[in-house]
């Protein structure tokens, strides 16, 4: 099949057109709703902007205000606190659950399903389950259970009124909600470890404990690095469950950055300022994503 120069060119054009038909619908939506808002947001951050639209160009004033705004730093610190509290807890619990649920057991499938189940529930549902579990005076399950088990009636724990307990509640609720997903990732990594390794080890007389520390955990290190990064990234985006469970309270003790962005942008109508703060979050997340992709690529190469 010899093609003339013109035929080749025509064929190439036809190829481009056909590809365009397949690509266009998605590319248009993607450009408008994913890519464009990045630039729109950057642009807006240099303006005074309310719900009526653009008001005035104010240069870097939004950024200057941000640096001087103690509530911004508090919210950023709260988000970071959430990352610091929840990441180690979720990593550890999902690893432990994976190891337990991956043992040979007649109930293996049931365990996996149960541990994963909360992950399927909507954030609104898990938040209200948490709130109702934690209500004081026998209205919530925990208080009720405590008293049914013999605790004195005057003894109460105010899970959402105390600032430390509010953090505990939010972190435990998040743990309960999300650990199942990471557990599944760990289980699939566990299943990729060749059985021969364990067989060889047990022939050599290695105890189960030695097998765990010398084979299983080292073999999981790549997965652990990946889950760690995914978990940090996801935790930096925390908003919904805190918003619904504590609304950032008591006071402002658990208010995360996205909530502050939401309040400034939509309740106080400072959309430009909200965009400037979003940009900080964007920057943090981009750096974390780049690190995560680097780890992921290293994993593929090996």
């Amino acid at each position: 099949m010899q093609l003339t120069q013109q035929g080749k060119k025509q064929k190439r054009l036809r190829g481009d057109l056909i590809a365009a038909c397949f690509l266009l619908p998605f590319t248009v939506l993607y450009t408008i709703f994913t890519i464009y808002p990045v630039f729109q947001g950057a642009y807006m951050s240099f303006f005074k902007w309310n719900l009526m639209g653009k008001q005035a160009f104010i240069g870097v004033d939004n950024y200057v205000n941000m640096v001087e705004d103690k509530y911004f730093w508090q919210a950023l610190w709260n988000t970071t606190k959430f990352v610091l509290y929840s990441t180690p807890a979720i990593m550890l619990s999902s690893l432990v659950l994976a190891l337990l649920a991956n043992r040979a057991s007649p109930l293996k499938r049931l365990y996996r399903t149960v541990f994963f189940l909360p992950n399927l529930l909507s954030v609104a549902v898990i938040s209200y389950i948490t709130i109702y579990m934690c209500q004081p005076y026998d209205m919530g399950f925990l208080s009720n259970l405590m008293h049914s088990l013999g605790a004195p009636t005057e003894f109460e724990i105010f899970w959402l009124k105390d600032k430390h307990l509010a953090w505990v509640t939010v972190v435990v609720a998040t743990l309960w909600w999300t650990q199942g997903y990471n557990m599944m990732l760990y289980i699939s990594a566990l299943q990729d470890i060749p059985d021969q390794l364990y067989e060889a080890a047990s022939i050599d007389g290695a105890t189960p404990r030695q097998q765990l520390f010398k084979i299983t955990l080292p073999m999981l290190s790549k997965t652990t690095a990946l889950i760690l990064m995914l978990q940090i990234i996801a935790s930096y985006k925390v908003f919904q469950q805190i918003w619904l469970i504590t609304a950032g309270g008591p006071g402002r003790a658990t208010r995360p950055l996205i909530q502050y962005i939401y309040e400034q942008g939509f309740q106080k109508q400072k959309l430009g300022y909200a965009c400037a703060m979003s940009f900080v979050l964007f920057f943090i997340l981009i750096i974390l994503t780049l690190i995560q992709r680097k780890i992921g690529r290293k994993g593929e190469e090996e």
């Binding site: 590319t27 993607y30 408008i32 709703f33 994913t34 890519i35 464009y36 808002p37 990045v38 729109q40 947001g41 807006m44 902007w49 719900l51 639209g53 990234i233 985006k237 908003f239 996205i258 962005i261 942008g265 939509f266 959309l271 909200a274 965009c275 979003s278 940009f279 979050l281 964007f282 997340l285 981009i286 994503t289 780049l290």
Partner: peptide, 22 residues
């Protein structure tokens, strides 16, 4: 170009998305 989208966290562009959708 599509790969770049993986880096964009929707939460961080939500204000601009709202203005655009509006």
């Amino acid at each position: 170009y599509f790969l770049a989208g993986l880096m964009v966290p929707g939460e961080a562009t939500i204000v601009a998305l709202f203005v655009l959708a509006n």
